[in-house]
Design a protein around this nucleic acid. Structure first.
Length: 582
RNA sequence: GCGCCCGUAGUGAAAUGGAUAUCACAUCGGUCUUCGGAACCGCUGUUGUGGGUUCGAAUCCUGCCGGGCGCACCA
């Protein structure tokens, strides 16, 4: 089916009004039609436009009536366009034919042929994955899926700090707390929690006790030089435990990375680049360090190699970028991190423009907000962080309480608790623009009611239940509820029921998917899907879907099925699973 | 001090420069013999503040007030 925006724009062109497909607005209020145009050109009098030539509304015969444009109203300088029953029927048919299990409604091919690399989550081995990483993961995964649905090939990457002072602190802690170390047969969760605690202990000791600080500095050097076999063994063990544990969590969250990058690989490459940039005079020596004087460009000065000759994160970033472009060569490279790194990335992009113009132009940073608690700021060094897994576990517990009376097996209950908990968490992250902070209140932020992930899942499960019953009763979904009215209006059609709010909302999904990609805005999907679910629940309360009239029932089943597909598609784009039962 | 970001009902949020600023929670009231009540219906209540640009501003510019983040050897 041709894009409806282009169809409408073409029709307006025929009557001499230049309209770009993108000029068509989706009115906030459905009462103002399916699309609207504001006539900016004051030389054009909307009342004098021969609109009837498009809609055929005022001609004697309906020969000229457009198959998809029902009517065009003039309201001030707005033109409000209503689409025809045939259009709604065709979109419903398209929806019902969309991908496997109904997931795929709203996809387009706008970015076909493009390869887009997206780096997110980025936790560090030897530290626990905390809520900040979950935010990055949730936003990154959702954006990945949204971009994929606009036709691009997505390459998911995760960058992890497997070298640096934090590891020396953790290893120092592991040695001191050796008595508490879980046996090898214990779970990864227990072992990684132990390593996390060791890091907290080491980090505290580093700040509070000068003797411990010296010991940790020695360990740090030993890690770099690989001179101590005991430390080497602890490093290998701890790195593997952390990475394996992260993998378990990614699986739970629904992310599968294509590439993993490590600081241990990027540092040497970065140093090589620093040398080159130093030779070109882009970087310079200052107080024994190698720096970039960002002030010349309205940016900050950043250190690339410290006065001890060790590479900083900046240098590693240059190495990382080179690896990304050498190995993957993306058309666009997106990095998602916390907002606090926004200025830092401006410096990196500026340097990339000097080093590799292509990489500089194609690299884009997206900052996400912080999760703040009413109680105060969290810090992984102090150990007052909420880890990703403890948050998931707490929410799962609450879901489990809610479903304990249900007639599900223990195994099903556990699965449901997990997917509902993750839905609640992800929804609360994605419902707002990515850059904004979330003031997190455990009781309030993770609602299961209204405006929430579980509300969407519930609506989906409820429709699935209706569809199961429809199947038992032998009711087959049919948009054939649309009767071609060949006698009175050859190009028209009439519904068994007039298209209502649900139909009007359903046809917007492709637009929402497109805009969410252009603006990198998952919250647009959230708002849309919530509105759709709400409209369905309202419809459900007022209409019996499995009713006595065969034609009406068949149509309502088709409509419910289409809503289910749209919900499942929207939830997929948010990285949330859509259960059949819950 | 300099730079960047933010300020929308009691609370948390949404809104491509467009129409009567939307949604949820909370409050108060109602629905409940049919398909799943994690539901539905109704009530109350909002663009920090002063200017400016525009036919039109929550949105763009600007002064002030309030908050967050960043500003050389952490990542």
């Amino acid at each position: 089916m041709k894009n409806i925006r282009e169809i409408i724009a073409d029709e307006f062109k025929k009557i001499g009004l230049e309209v770009l497909p993108a000029d068509l607005d989706l009115p906030k209020n459905l009462a103002n039609g399916d699309f609207s145009i504001f006539i900016k050109d004051t030389a054009v009098d909307p009342l004098k436009l021969p609109l009837e030539k498009i809609s055929g509304a005022e001609t004697q015969s309906n020969e000229q009536a457009h198959e998809y444009i029902q009517s065009i109203e003039v309201a001030g300088r707005f033109l409000n366009i209503r689409l025809s029953p045939k259009f709604f029927a065709d979109v419903l048919k398209e929806n019902l034919a969309s991908g496997a299990a109904g997931v795929g409604f709203g996809r387009n091919q706008n970015l076909a042929g493009q390869k887009i690399l997206i780096e997110y989550t980025d936790p560090n081995p030897f530290k626990e994955l905390h809520i900040g990483h979950m935010m990055s993961n949730t936003i990154g995964e959702s954006l990945s899926r949204i971009i994929e649905w606009n036709g691009a090939d997505i390459v998911r990457a995760c960058y992890q700090g497997d070298v640096g002072p934090h590891i020396a602190k953790a290893i120092w802690g592991i040695q001191k707390l050796a008595a508490e170390r879980p046996a090898e047969e214990k779970t990864l969760a227990e072992k990684s929690a132990f390593i996390g605690n060791s890091y907290v202990a080491g980090s505290a000791a580093y700040e509070d006790d000068s003797e411990s600080k010296k010991e940790i500095d020695v360990i740090n050097k030993a890690i770099y030089e690989k001179t101590d076999s005991e430390i080497n063994d602890l490093y290998t063990w701890g790195r593997k435990v952390s990475l394996d544990r992260f993998e378990e969590i990614y699986k739970k969250l629904g992310t599968k990375f294509d590439y993993y990058f490590f600081e241990s690989e990027t540092a040497p490459l970065g140093l090589f680049i620093v040398d080159e940039l130093l030779g070109k005079g882009i970087l310079e020596k200052s107080d024994g360090a190698i720096v970039f004087k960002g002030e010349n460009y309205g940016l900050h000065t950043r250190v690339f190699v410290n006065s001890q000759g060790l590479p900083t994160y900046e240098t590693k970033e240059l190495g990382l970028t080179k690896m990304k472009f050498d190995r993957i060569n993306p058309d666009q490279s997106i990095v998602i991190t916390g907002n606090e790194q926004t200025d830092y990335y401006k410096v990196i992009v500026k340097i990339l423009e000097f080093y590799d113009h292509r990489a500089g132009n194609r690299t884009r940073h997206i900052g996400h907000g912080m999760l703040r608690f009413a109680e105060g700021k969290m810090s992984s060094r102090k150990g007052n962080v909420v880890t990703g897994e403890s948050l998931i576990a707490d929410v799962e517990k609450r879901v489990a309480e809610k479903i304990q009376e249900r007639d599900f097996s223990a195994e099903d209950k556990a699965t449901i608790a997990e997917i509902v908990a993750i839905a609640a968490i992800k929804y609360s992250i994605l419902k707002q623009a990515p850059g904004r902070d979330i003031i997190f209140d455990f009781e309030k932020s993770l609602s299961f009611e209204g405006d929430s992930g579980p509300y969407l899942q519930y609506t989906h499960a409820r429709i699935c239940s209706i569809l199961r019953k429809a199947e038992e009763e032998g009711i087959v979904a049919s948009v054939g509820g649309v009767i071609e009215d060949s006698q009175n209006a050859p190009n028209s059609a009439s519904f068994v029921e007039e298209p209502g709010e649900l139909e009007h909302l359903l046809i917007r999904m492709p637009d929402v998917v497109e805009r969410a990609q252009k603006e990198l805005a998952p919250q647009l999907i959230v708002t849309y899907v919530t509105q759709l679910a709400s409209a369905f629940n309202s419809y459900y309360a007022n209409n019996t879907i499995l009713c006595d009239d065969k034609d009406i029932s068949a149509y309502r089943v088709a409509l419910a099925s289409a809503v289910k597909n749209a919900l499942a598609s929207g939830l997929y784009l948010l990285g949330i699973k859509a259960p059949q039962r819950m």
